[in-house]
Design a protein around this nucleic acid. Structure first.
Length: 574
RNA sequence: GCCGUCGUAGCUUAGCGGUAAAGCACCUCGUUGGUAACGAGGAGAUCAUGGGUUCAAUCCCCAUCGACGGCUCCA
């Protein structure tokens, strides 16, 4: 049964934004409303007001909004002339600016609820009563039109749903996201830290995090080797002229760390690995017989990010990409893309990303050249042949060519961008790359930049949240903990640990002087997949009692069969 | 960088114009316990840093640094 009068969620949220602005108009008449759209999960509204909104203000606004919703004011629209709109909002320069900028051929409309009228394109619930359940969530600064040279506004965020149940479910999801926050789990599980004394955005991988990283790297390396990539290693700093030639200084300069002066020469920390790989390509004459040439590197790059944008492992100043650059002939592009898509799929499967999507971003029509058309066709064909889901973002490509992004949703449905695959005709031209073709002439190769996991730091952060810190056994920093029930079984427990370590597993002995319940709790909170308990009975039988993460029933098995079981699990990457 | 909020022991937090308190974690001792917290004791804090106001500042004011929520950008 579909109720036609029921607004879409976006309409409902957009209406909630109006209601918020109405409440602000009532309680804070000096605040000038600017823009207030619906967004994923809710809405926001930006106001120009000298005083900040406090949490207390939000509560008052919520109460006033509830009254407006309860009053069930109808949403009425009317069309006005441009001058009419400008006159209506004479006291609000933002609305005037918007009214001025509405294209000639578009109608200018005003929408009213109760005593509040807003300049608005439309798309609302029929009345304010259509908002089922809402909550104001936070206040934040924002710039008018997102431009830091324009006035700073205050943004109030809210969320809105059809009913209270949905709202509660959403708030529970937020809570779940907080529980999984990689910054919190990173500290609790001793995986990594960011040290104040070293500076923001620089990641210290602790032993447990580094183990996981090593496993991820090995997994990626294996795939690269099978697909004919050759590992290379390039320096972290290079003479500034390298980045002048590559164009990074011009195009990416504001994200680069400043120069290091040595003996009058200026060096730069590398922001990307491509120039280095290009130098290796260029070091000698290349034959078409060598192509495609595939150089891979876990390349650590440094990028200047403004302090305010740093965020855990997601946004850092130094990170390592699972980077590679392919040098090929244009007619090899499609094949390389197909291979890359296969590899991306292998990666996502291994790390349990079942919901993913590719986004093909084409170059803006005005700078799209003949070569871009070739590249786009290659990517499109590869995508179509793979049968994998993809979207197209027209004009969203990099400045040097079309690109393909790999987007995944994690275990609780949040979207993340992993790697990206980009076709580049510009760098080969800038560096005058060549290969000797069958016709004896020199031709220019095409480059593909590709990183699948993207940044290992960010990928790790995503994995921590995806798994909620409970890494599957093949990834877990500690795969099994052996705990004796009392001191009497300590020797036996130590033996079991040795057996496991000899078999190549990451095992640990619990030597603490605590009761079993305490130890179980401790290792559960550490999210260890297998806790092996050894008491008198187990010592006598040469067994261990398995308390397995996520499984209520306990099992007693021989040490040999546990080793076999774990071997199977790890080999299957479970 | 900008706007806002916040910095008290390793962590989570209490307190407040008269120089600090708890739980967890840690250490020691007792205990040898069968599947998510055994008991007792101990150690641990120039209350982020630097200035200012005051007889007196962890508390009030200013600045700096850092964290968090956003704005912008992207891996």
């Amino acid at each position: 049964m579909v109720d036609d009068s029921r607004p879409s969620l976006a309409e409902l949220r957009h209406t909630a934004a109006h209601v918020l602005a109405y409440a602000v108009q009532d309680l804070f008449p000096e605040a000038k409303p600017t823009i207030g759209p619906a967004i994923e999960n809710g809405f926001y509204y930006d106001f120009d007001r000298a005083e900040p909104f406090t949490p207390d203000d939000l509560e008052r606004l919520e109460r006033r909004m509830a009254e407006i919703v309860a009053a069930d004011y109808p949403m009425t629209g009317r069309e006005v002339t441009r001058d009419g709109a400008i006159a209506e909002f004479a006291a609000n320069p933002y609305k005037v600016e918007m009214a001025r900028e509405i294209p000639e051929n578009q109608p200018i409309t005003l929408y009213t609820i109760g005593e509040f009228t807003d300049l608005c394109r439309g798309g609302h619930a029929q009345s304010t009563g259509g908002i089922g359940a809402f909550k104001l969530t936070n206040v934040a600064g924002s710039y008018w039109r997102g431009d830091e040279h324009k006035p700073m506004l205050q943004r109030i965020y809210g969320t809105a749903w059809y009913d209270r149940e949905e709202l509660e479910a959403y708030l529970a999801r937020l809570e779940e996201a907080r529980r999984r926050d990689h910054r919190k789990l990173g500290a609790e599980l001793d995986l990594f830290s960011i040290e104040e004394q070293a500076g923001g955005g620089l990641v210290f991988w602790h032993p447990k995090g580094a183990i996981v990283r090593g496993i991820i790297e090995n997994f990626i390396r294996e795939g690269l080797r099978e697909r004919g990539y050759q590992p290379v290693v390039t320096p972290h700093i290079a003479h500034e002229r390298l980045y002048e030639i590559s164009g990074h200084l011009d195009n990416f300069g504001e994200n680069m760390f400043g120069p290091l002066e040595v003996e009058g020469q200026r060096f730069r920390l590398k922001p990307m690995n491509c120039p280095g790989h290009i130098l290796i390509y260029k070091d000698r004459l290349r034959s078409y017989r060598e192509l495609p040439l595939r150089f891979s590197e876990f390349g650590t790059v440094y990028r200047f990010e403004r302090s305010g944008v740093l965020h855990g492992l997601n946004r850092v100043r130094g990170f390592t990409q699972d980077d590679a650059h392919l040098f090929c002939m244009p007619d090899q592009l499609q094949h390389e893309f197909e291979q890359t898509l296969d590899e991306a799929l292998r990666l996502m499967k291994a790390f349990d990303f079942v919901d993913f999507q590719y986004v093909l971003s084409t170059r803006a029509p005005e700078d799209r050249g003949e070569t871009d058309a070739v590249a786009e066709a290659a990517i499109r064909n590869a995508l179509e042949r793979s049968g994998l889901p993809f979207d197209v973002d027209e004009g969203g490509g990099a400045f040097y060519g079309p690109k393909l992004d790999i987007n995944v949703r994690d275990a609780i449905g949040r979207p993340w961008q992993l790697g990206t695959v980009q076709v580049d005709f510009i760098l080969p031209a800038r560096f005058e790359l060549k290969y000797r073709a069958a016709d004896g002439q020199d031709h220019q190769p095409v480059m593909i930049h590709r990183a699948l996991a993207g940044s290992l730091e960010r990928f790790f952060g995503i994995l921590i949240e995806h798994y909620g810190g409970a890494f599957p056994a093949w990834l877990a920093p500690v795969q099994a903990v052996v705990t004796p029930i009392s001191e009497h079984e300590m020797g036996y427990a130590r033996e079991v640990v040795n057996r496991l370590e000899k078999a190549g597993f990451r095992a640990q002995l619990d030597e603490s002087n605590e009761k079993l319940g305490y130890k179980i709790r401790h290792w559960k909170t550490q999210k260890v997949p297998y806790i092996l308990v050894a008491g008198k009975r187990e010592v006598e039988d040469g067994t261990v009692n398995i308390n397995q993460r996520g499984i209520e029933e306990k099992r007693t098995v021989s040490i040999d069969s546990f080793v076999e079981e774990l071997k199977t699990v790890v080999e299957a990457r479970r």
